[in-house]
Design a protein around this nucleic acid. Sequence first.
DNA 1: AATCCCAACAACCGCCGTCAC
DNA 2: TGTGACGGCGGTTGTTGGGAT
Length: 228
Amino acid sequence: MERSLSENGRSEVGMSITKGPWTEEEDSVLFNYITVHGEGLKRTGKSCRLRWLNYLRPNVRRGNITLQEQLLILDLHSRWGNRWSKIAEHLPGRTDNEIKNYWRTRVVKQAKQLKCDVNSKQFRDTLRFVWMPRMLERIQAQASSNHAQTTLNDNAQAHSNTDFVEAHASSLSDSAASCSAEEASSSNPCHDRNYNYSDMPGNNGFGGADLWTDENICFLQQQLADDF
DNA sequence: AATCCCAACAACCGCCGTCAC
DNA sequence: TGTGACGGCGGTTGTTGGGAT
């Protein structure tokens, strides 16, 4: 009987875990290890596990969350909600903790500024129809400028950017297609890449509240600018 | 230079499911 | 089959570093 652990400490092929009764040999290995190294840290198993998963694990990625990762987080969160570990499975090297922190410090902050609940339809629509398309625009711009360099440098990363953008552009189109008939019939903003925020149907298609004050639009634009 | 404030990151806590015994 | 220990996960709190005053 065995189970394996993944990058996030979950199932993974190739790293087997022995279960069941301890053998004399295993006892001996453990005994010798403790004899040499001592009982070591005054830490709980849980604490050690967390430290390993979130910090020490070899392929853990550190540093700023990229635009592509941000878009993916928003997309996956819209499907699964606060299932951080599930979302983390799709961002290689990122931990659930990191994603959770990103959500709290960036996205929840945005919701607060807009004075709406982060889980409200109103805010989710904002993410879907304003934030994500805007992010996508930036990624596309980035990808095309990288592509120009790629022709010179044969940079493979630019190709992956392009693939990513294409995949998510169609994903967002799907989202747009799932808008209500009312939204779809009234020149849906999600289709218009040059969409002006002040034209958003804040008073008739987004839950009725007037989110799109000059102040809020300005704040959102600032947030998006900060991200890139 | 000192302090205050806030964002970002790290760690802890509690609940719940699973597993060994 | 019951039960205690442990691990996984999401929520919350603590810490730290940098910018503003």
